[in-house]
Nucleic acid binder design. Structure first.
Lengths: 361, 361
DNA sequence: CTGAAAGCGCTTACAG
DNA sequence: CTGAAAGCGCTTACAG
């Protein structure tokens, strides 16, 4: 009767008891069996090398004890992106701590049919949406979703779901304001892809700080890329040709800032003496760049942990949440930003970038 | 009779057919239903928003269609490690392509009981062990494991299981040989943690190249760290005090090399003019370091992909494999290594590092 | 073409 | 303290 893998039935037979009794001792339901029975059961379990089948248990309990992380647009190197992997790391840490397993649901096409198929199939108790794009169908899905869920790394204000994210807008706003306090008024912007919520929010923060300081933003000083180093280099090359020139540039992420650094190196533009540059994310490479990049760090791992905690709470209390947890970014001051001291006269001669000198912060 | 979520029974009732018929049309088992029946069933599915319960299906099919990735010693920031996340990325890519889901099994304590509990419970069809430590209990487990499995990022030669890894020994051997051809004979080594298979193998490659060139390795020129940047800096600081001095150093990984770079910068040692340095891994930061780090790249993503492919093959053909797939490392030449031209005389005066000059490769 | 029945491995009332 | 029975949601022979 026993197949390859022993089942509870095999244990029961071997121990000479019913399967009910086996479950009872396995779950330590005290008072439902004698000490002798307990020992016999445990012995049979041991001898047979019996492991309860989780699948069967999940079916009857209607609980899989696993949380799903859904990532959309899996084009290949998503987890190679430190943002995602760090987020996942935080989620995993909390899930493990709470006794949950983790399943990764990678959607090749993020349409409703596929999400529902892979999330509402009983295999997960709740889902964390990892950084869904701005107008992703997933964001539409969650609104009608009865499965516990939380959105991490994306936080449309109007969304009636739990969200955990960094304060993109506020962080950039604060950083640009700091730049202005440092004397910069000609501040360029290296934007990210417009279908990323984060990118548009960061750009908003930049614009708001400018407006508030009475500075009119120039569209010539705003250039967008796709968050890659290459696109940052290209965008910076364009920016470098614009006149009048700017004294500092804030980049939507570090990789683009690193590309911009390269563009400036090639052109002989000195950082931070000629141009100050500020990044976002604080990726590992930012610290070892030359000069080390001043940047805004977001608590990615903590975002993941919080998302997992919020999700598990919903699962276990069986109450949906619409809480938005927004973490502030942290300004990491390194060497790529210095105060602006000497504004060159309007209409000054060529190589304006090279005419200025500033002291370090 | 219908709970919150519709089941196959609800569909059957609504369509006025048996549940057998419902499965049949759902699985497109042609010839077992009429066109009219098919339409009614599909309509009921649509109206009810029915999704098959994967758990129930897995139970009867004895197949979960998910592959497990087991990571041991989950102390918190494992996935934050680009190696693991890239490996996972490769695994995920292949798994998704083959129609499998992915489950992450993070073991806090990698003992046999826990592994077996979480892998032999029917929830996964096979397991990939991600970079288990040198003498991990997991490596003992796999030997008696009936579940399909493959070890990725670790490859004890004697292991009777499928393995996918980079050729640690051979890659370092080749690189050190190259250094010797460049004129270096005094080559120091920044080793990794000795409980890592990779670290010991890389050290072996270093030693073998030295032996083969008739160079006797000096234990004073070998220093070990724990793969972190800090440990690399510390180890290099020690190394820098050793006399006679060396002309080049090969580091067990890039992060330690980056730390070593910092140590040298602080001491005023010029790289590569005074000392050449070679890393391993080609992490993103290696390219933006100053000078950009010459290093050995390992095809991590490909290792993950291959591991997944091997595993799925085992699962679907129901035949265990003991194949070892070993990828060669790739030497990425950047600016931290130059040929050695002038060997200082034995017993030369202080600051020997600063007395040499070399041209770039 | 269609459906009743057995069964996947477990858990949970419920009755002794 | 113990066990027979029903059931979780599906699939798979098997008989019509």
């Amino acid at each position: 009767m026993s197949g390859m893998t022993p089942t509870i039935k095999d244990v029961a037979e071997r121990a000479g008891v019913s399967i009910t009794t086996v479950t009872n001792v396995l779950h330590g339901r005290g008072g439902r069996f004698s000490e002798g029975t307990r020992e016999r059961v445990l012995k049979a379990v041991e001898e047979l090398g019996y492991r309860p089948n989780t699948i069967a248990r999940s079916l009857v309990r209607r609980r899989s004890n696993t949380v799903g992380v859904v990532v959309e647009h899996f084009r290949g190197a998503l987890l190679g992106n430190p943002y995602f992997s760090t987020l996942l790391d935080g989620i995993l840490a909390e899930a493990v701590k709470a006794g949950y397993q983790l399943k990764i649901i990678a959607l090749e096409r993020p349409d409703l049919v596929h999400v529902r198929q892979s999330t509402e199939d009983g295999s997960i108790d709740g889902a964390i949406l990892a950084a869904p794009l701005y107008q992703s169908p997933l964001l539409r899905w969650v609104e009608h979703c009865r499965l516990p869920h939380v959105v991490a790394g994306s936080s449309p204000p109007a969304l009636q779901s739990a969200c955990v994210d960094v304060d993109d807008e506020g962080s950039v706003y604060a950083a640009v304001k700091w730049l202005i306090e440092l004397g910069h008024r000609r501040i360029a912007f290296l934007g990210g892809p417009t279908d990323y919520w984060s990118a548009t929010q960061r750009e908003r923060g930049y614009l708001r700080a400018l407006f508030e300081a009475g500075i009119t933003p120039t569209s010539h000083w705003i250039r967008r890329g796709n968050y890659s180093t290459l696109s940052g280099r290209l965008a910076m090359e364009m920016l470098l040709q614009v006149r009048p020139a700017f004294s500092s540039v804030v980049s939507c992420n570090d990789w683009m800032a690193l590309g911009a650094l390269e563009a400036m190196r090639r052109k002989g533009v000195l950082v931070p003496n000629d141009i100050s540059i500020l990044g976002f994310d604080d990726v590992e490479a930012a610290a070892v760049a030359s000069p080390p990049l001043t940047t805004i760090r977001q608590p990615v791992r903590e975002i993941g942990m919080t998302a997992a905690r919020l999700l598990i709470q919903q699962i276990e209390q069986d109450t949906p949440s619409v809480e938005h947890v927004i973490f502030p970014g942290e300004l990491i001051q390194r060497d790529s930003v210095v105060p602006y001291s000497l504004e060159p006269e309007e209409g000054s001669k060529p190589r304006p970038h090279l005419r200025r000198r500033r002291r370090r912060c």
